[in-house]
Design a binder for these strands. Structure first.
Lengths: 279, 279
DNA sequence: ACAATAGTGTCTGTCAGACACTATGCC
DNA sequence: GGCATAGTGTCTGACAGACACTATTGT
């Protein structure tokens, strides 16, 4: 590592040959999650909420015609976060969206072209804010998730096409909660993106319980029933009304707006209220 | 992205020029955490536990003579996990140690030589297992941590040298628990490693509450008092005995061994017991 | 005897799970 | 009227925080 002796750091840097180490290609891939309304026949019923993700159809090799997460190469003068933001902007025309780094995937063969390390991100968007700004190859897929202790199954549907993946969960250590994901079935997703999606779903499921990130997927005004539906669809289980209201009561603020029009009692509209601000 | 049309993926790959994208240097940096016994004068008292981290003194520019986390470049034919394992082996001669990926740091100027993206890892070791296998420039530093809602202060000491860092915590979003760390004071740590250390401490503090990762820092046999000390030193607060014993009772197994010799009642030795195995 | 840790019993308040109940608009 | 959702009251058991107490060693 050393070699020639230098008197100062400035002198060293002037002489430094940055080509002596092998370099790698890096990309960011972003899980853009949202919740969609799915209309239900019965006029009385609320539209069903569906957890959904934005996928892009690849138009070139490798994995031509398969679906993948929006992603792209990280520029040499670009932060990882900035690369992820740039890609989000390109695909959805959205800015100032909640994003967080998920995990860095570095398997040798995850891309058949060459060694590419990918930093994955999660972005949460309110679908009402975009609708028709999508780029050409992008499409929202609803996800139906079946999960047990050993396996996750996700069914994707964009209204035209549907497919499913099956991923086995395998604890990396008995002392931790980290899983190694082994893809058992996957015909339509490119690269290792099946793993990335399953990791992202897992992270979201966890964080919904101890943070307020759900509100990034909500419109400004919403009813508690709608909010509860979103929790239920992400957690994959029904919640009891009183318990749910107890949990979120400090995170929301009643407005003077009311949502009418369903074949049932109208509902008060709420908005997000940061519980740390009131103290 | 496309260009010439190919009939198959094989054909495309044969023709693929991997040099068309700018590449980056990547490193892994590992937080090797452990808990050390610090002898106390009083013969009756238990040795005090100290949370500690392994640092390496840089012997070359940049940051010559500053301390940094053990790390190194990721090989082109090497997994991120493998790179981290290799470095752990080099520094401590340890293998089969608990490790998990922490975060990927990608600021443009984190290394003055050139653009380097660093994937950080956490490794937890039982210090009794190594003692004298350390590589030349490595040294264990105890950490005393002072944390409030806005700031973290860490005091490092390896018995010869001591220094401290101060890092400001700044929530990235009101809806989440992600912090942006701003280094306010740091004279002795190289690169952005002050941030990495603070992130790692935060992760560990969190995960100790809902996983069994502490046991990776414990010897095979330990008393509940010792285990409680480790929790206390990581969490930075005292715990009540009965509450602590309630929490860990399913995670440990009583052995027929007993630890005597302190100026007080002897203590039963326990060992880790995976709570998921008994069902 | 006493200092220090080991280990247990139990009260209390908080809170999640569960169920029952009331309220109200729209066809 | 009755369906479907909105919204509330309250019981219960689990459990964390708190404190008090007993047990046992080496010097």
């Amino acid at each position: 590592m050393s070699g020639k002796e230098y008197a100062s750091e400035e002198e060293f840097l002037k002489d430094y040959d940055s080509s002596q180490f092998e370099k790698l290609s890096m990309t960011t891939d972003t899980l853009i999650f949202s919740v969609a309304d799915e209309e239900v026949g019965n006029y009385r019923k609320l539209p069903e909420k569906k957890f959904s993700v934005l996928l892009v159809k690849r138009d070139s090799y490798p994995f031509k015609d398969k679906w993948c997460l929006p992603g792209g190469f990280v520029g040499i003068q670009e932060t990882l976060d900035d690369a992820a933001k740039r890609i989000l902007k390109t695909e959805t025309n959205l800015q100032d969206i909640y994003m967080e780094q998920l995990y860095t995937f570095g398997a040798i063969d995850r891309d058949p072209r060459m060694r590419i390390v990918s930093v994955s991100y999660i972005a949460l968007v309110d679908k009402n804010r975009l609708k028709d700004h999508l780029s050409g190859n992008a499409s929202w897929f609803t996800m139906d998730i079946l999960e047990d202790a050993k396996e996750v199954q996700v069914m994707f549907d964009n209204g035209i096409e549907n497919f499913s993946i099956t991923v086995e969960k395998c604890l990396k250590s008995p002392t931790s909660d980290r899983y190694e994901y082994i893809v058992k079935k996957n015909d339509k997703l490119a690269f290792d993106h099946a793993k990335v999606i399953v990791s992202g779903i897992s992270r979201l499921k966890n964080k919904i319980g101890y943070t307020d990130i759900v509100f990034n997927m909500m419109p400004k005004y919403f009813t508690l029933g709608e909010l509860q539906q979103v929790y239920e669809v992400i957690l994959g289980k029904k919640l009891l009304d009183p318990a749910f209201r107890r949990i979120i009561k400090d995170k929301v603020e009643k407005t003077d707006k009311i949502k009418t029009g369903g074949g049932h009692r109208p509902s008060v509209l709420y908005q997000y209220h940061n519980p740390n601000h009131e103290k």
